[in-house]
Design a protein around this nucleic acid. Structure first.
Lengths: 349, 349
DNA sequence: CCACAGCGCTTAACCGGATAAGTGACCCGA
DNA sequence: TCGGGTCACTTATCCGGTTAAGCGCTGTGG
């Protein structure tokens, strides 16, 4: 339990000044190669690790980024999406020796307050915004704050900072074309939360596609993404007089719940009902039959987001405020791919 | 984008010294109530928030705790446990205005390195250790480091720091008694990773209980907690000549997978097979039939752990090193309760 | 031969708070 | 009336890094 070693200790041991040690450790000019090598050797031997607070205070950078999740304690675990996303984010951050600060909040107000505090305290150098809404209060708030941020989702109209997103239109087309080919004409969709941007984009894509092909009906019911609502809506859909022959779910949890309801009602899958899930977590392969789903690489997505944020933060540091161009660029990732499995099949006449 | 407000700015505005402002803001004696009120008013008006790095440097506390998870990017999402745990931890931490720093690692070596760095950098004031093993290298390493820590799991023999845990023996008894009462005599258990402490504890509890009651067989097969292995083991169990009439799974993901396999093999649940899951995530209520499972309040558990860690850190700060007593106390939480649902029923003869 | 540049290092200021020590004004009791 | 204690505040130092400025020495070109 000896006292931690500081650059002053190294300076004393090497017989040079604090400044020289700092130059040597940071690989900047100002010391000879001989001295540098000696200092580095001593630092390594003494097990020197710079104090984060001291460095932050000097260079005014926290070497950390923040992420605030707005979910309840009970429901946050069930959605594999977040943990996979965080895992990807984390991989990129720790490669760049940045830390990740996580906070879970209940309301938008709390979330805004967290951002304000983080930035005022300089606890983070930037944040990642999840669950982008169609009209999102957070976007202007954060831009006004001057807090570097990246939207995890998009495209965001007139954004004042970058967004990283997947195209959702193409996968929607793929699903409907696939179901159409299998002979389905009555398709229902259990969508996510209406206020979310990607929900709105999918709504539009389905409507467009439905008009293009001659489906008898393509209905959309909005939900809160929970399994409970997924089950409830499925029960309602399946007990209506003209029930759909295929149901598409906006996440995997609801799809699993829907599958459960179908079993409960004694429906054979896929003979009497086809089921498609969005977001191919391992969950989709656990059920019987396995769920046909849209596969995205979520950890890679998280890594992309983190990478863009680090670039933005780097750009901020040098040469004053970043250019408008670099602040609003938009990165599009590979769209989700349809993975057909046992839960979908041709319509039985 | 004005420069951030410092105590020097407040001092200037209030016409006092930096020191007076610091005393006023921290509620310590040294300023009159009149002056204190004036300073607080000015600070509030100017939107003052103390710089975290500066404060940390002075008081040498990071106001943050760390948690390192050793899981792969792909599998970490599927287990609702972690996110629920983190959510509970976070609730307590942010109530005490502590931050949570998260890192995902691949190996124990990496994990140890992360702890070493965090502590050397003073990026965290303490850590939470998950997935405690039967002989866990991390325990001594961290104790030697002097890094305050709490084990999330236990009881830990000869621990040099506190552990927070559930009794697992009682729930094991409850499951086996329940299944025995329903007439089951051949019970299989798909257990978790053998090296983990709670797996070993459950192994022992099942063995003891099996000897106590006259089961025909109580077999245990170890797994890696993934759905894939859960399915594979279930398939093997169910196609053996003397197949079990009930299977108990050490987590919910494997139970769901097992249910899928049973469906696949055309077994009626619970008529031909009873299924019990450990850890009652919402997942257990999504399947059909719903899974009988052991309910624990994971977010509350996380909160408990965080609370103990904060106490430990607080104890550290005042009066030098904490007493041996406070360092090794062990908090036991309410054991898991059996929630019978549709997946279990009496044996059909 | 000298002005000047460049190297290699030291010095000292600075980041933004916390805090021990110091100071002057005031009050109180002997 | 004066010593001593308390109050209210200021001053100065520290935490552990970074970094601009300074300074002596050497080499070099005009």
């Amino acid at each position: 339990m000896t006292r931690r070693v500081t650059i002053a200790d190294i300076a004393a041991a090497a017989g040079v000044s604090k400044g020289a040690v700092s130059y040597a450790l940071n690989g900047r000019p100002g010391v000879s190669e001989t001295t540098r090598a000696k200092i580095l050797a001593i630092a390594a031997e003494m097990g020197f690790v710079p104090n984060r607070a001291a460095r932050s205070l000097s260079v005014s950078s926290a070497q950390a980024v923040g992420i605030a999740l707005r979910r309840s304690a009970r429901t946050i675990g069930i959605e594999p999406y977040f943990m996979e996303l965080i895992s990807g984010i984390e991989a990129t951050l720790s490669a760049g020796s940045y830390g990740l600060t996580l906070q879970i909040v209940g309301t938008v107000e709390e979330e805004l307050e967290v951002y304000r505090r983080w930035w005022a305290e300089r606890r983070v150098d930037g944040v990642l915004l999840c669950d982008i809404g169609t009209s999102d209060r957070r976007l202007d708030f954060i831009a006004d704050l001057g807090l570097p941020a990246v939207a995890v989702g998009g495209p965001v109209e007139g954004a004042r900072f970058p967004a990283v997103w997947h195209d959702d239109v193409e996968p929607c087309r793929a699903i409907l074309e696939y179901l159409y080919t299998l002979g389905h004409r009555r398709v229902a969709r259990v969508a996510g939360i209406p206020g979310l941007l990607h929900t709105a984009i999918r709504d539009q894509a389905y409507a467009d596609m439905a008009a293009e092909l001659d489906f008898a009906s393509v209905t959309t019911v909005h939900s809160d993404y929970t399994g409970e609502q997924g089950a409830q809506i499925t029960r309602r859909l399946l007990s209506s007089s003209k029930r759909p022959t295929a149901i598409v779910y906006d996440n995997d949890v609801m799809a699993v719940a829907g599958l459960g309801v179908a079993h409960e009602l004694g429906l054979e899958i896929p003979e009497q009902l086809s089921v498609v899930a969005w977001d191919d977590s391992p969950l989709c392969r656990l059920t019987h039959p396995a769920l046909t789903s849209l596969t995205r690489d979520i950890p890679a997505y998280g890594s992309n987001c983190a990478e863009v944020l680090l670039t933005l933060i780097g750009a901020n540091r040098e040469s004053g405020p970043p250019s408008a161009e670099s602040r609003t660029f938009s990165v599009q990732c590979r769209p989700a791919q349809l993975s057909p499995r046992g839960s979908t099949g041709p319509v039985q006449s």
